[in-house]
């Protein structure tokens, strides 16, 4: 149900993106050295765009590595950079500062993941920009990640951005259009392979409940049939209430949970204190919002996530 919704959406949205690109791509100020300057909102989009662009474009991330992307703030110098960029790949409704900057200083072309993937009902803290059409065929299971922007934790969704990014790059740099298309196809195939690895690895497990420090893993959980239970909600800074901790204690006992997962950008303290009390362990599950280690990329992190999950869930 959800897939068919997405496929329908994709046709219209791709068309809309194409229109948008046609509108924006009129060459006002061609890049100085002819290389498209591409900005991305955060690491997973940077990874994808870099894969599609190869050596042919300069790709950077607006959120500094190691920083929490939720509350990004931009310097005027960065806003100017956004206005001067040829293409920005971002997630509408995720980082308000970036939304404003893109609205005020539009780059030549824009790929908005929220639009491309029809995520609007799952993104942002209010559903204010929902068009009524979504509601009718809106599957209830989908509500698992209302307000959850971490779509890239489902590799198939990240893969679906490859073609629109390639199209946008081809508009800017028609000479290399075939290379961009080929790269997009390759990275989409690699991501789909990663998806099969995850699906196989998590197919037969003793447990399916994942206790995490903040509920960032809705897309991962839905894709691979897991249930996430978070100490705090989607906002990583929420203070967990003793009542919530009590519920988690009950979940841990009921499902024989062995591990509470922490993540890199959120203080692991709550998880560590609770795990120590319950006599279970903690492990790292990375929501790949940022990537500090230059020797590992999105795929490597997702594979170590898979290993951590397989260990914690007792997968065959």
């Amino acid at each position: 149900m959800r897939m068919s919704l997405m496929l329908n959406k994709r046709v219209t949205v791709t068309a809309a993106t194409a229109l948008l690109l046609a509108g924006c791509a009129t060459p006002t100020s061609p890049p100085t050295d002819g290389t498209p300057q591409v900005l991305t909102a955060l690491y997973p989009l940077e990874f994808l765009t870099q894969q599609v662009a190869g050596e042919l474009a300069s790709v950077t991330s607006v959120t500094p590595q190691g920083a929490e992307p939720h509350d990004l703030e931009l310097a005027p110098a960065q806003v100017r950079e956004i206005g001067a960029a040829d293409l920005i790949v971002y997630i509408g409704g995720f980082q308000p500062a970036l939304d404003d900057a893109v609205a005020q200083r539009p780059p030549r072309a824009v790929v908005d993941a929220t639009e491309v993937l029809a995520l609007s009902e799952g993104i942002g803290h209010e559903d204010e920009d929902d068009d009524a059409g979504h509601e009718d065929d809106h599957d209830h299971a989908h509500h698992d990640h209302d307000g959850d922007p971490h779509f890239w934790l489902d590799p198939t969704l990240l893969a679906r951005l490859a073609a629109p990014v390639a199209d946008a790059l081809a508009e800017l740099d028609p000479d290399n259009a075939t290379t961009y298309a080929a790269n997009a196809e390759r990275v989409a195939a690699e991501l789909s392979e990663l998806d099969s690895e995850l699906a196989t690895g998590l197919a037969t497990c003793e447990r399916d409940v994942v206790v995490v420090s903040h509920e960032a893993f809705g897309f991962l959980a839905e894709r691979y049939g897991l249930t996430q239970v978070g100490l705090s909600g989607i906002d990583p800074e929420g203070e967990p209430s003793p009542a919530r901790l009590r519920e988690i204690r009950a979940v841990v006992a009921e499902h024989d949970v062995t591990t509470i997962f922490t993540e890199t950008l959120v203080s692991p303290k709550a998880a560590e204190v609770l795990a120590a009390d319950l006599g279970i362990s903690t492990a790292l599950l990375d929501p790949v919002e940022t990537q500090v280690d230059p020797d590992a990329d999105y795929r490597d992190v997702m594979r170590s996530n898979l290993e951590a999950l397989r260990l914690a869930l007792g997968c065959a």
């Binding site: 920083a67 929490e68 939720h70 509350d71 990004l72 800074e237 919530r244 204190v273 609770l274």
Partner: peptide, 16 residues
Amino acid sequence: GTSANLVGYLFGSIST
């Protein structure tokens, strides 16, 4: 970094 990194050091909660 951003100010979110700072808050991590100073964040505390009586529930944990």
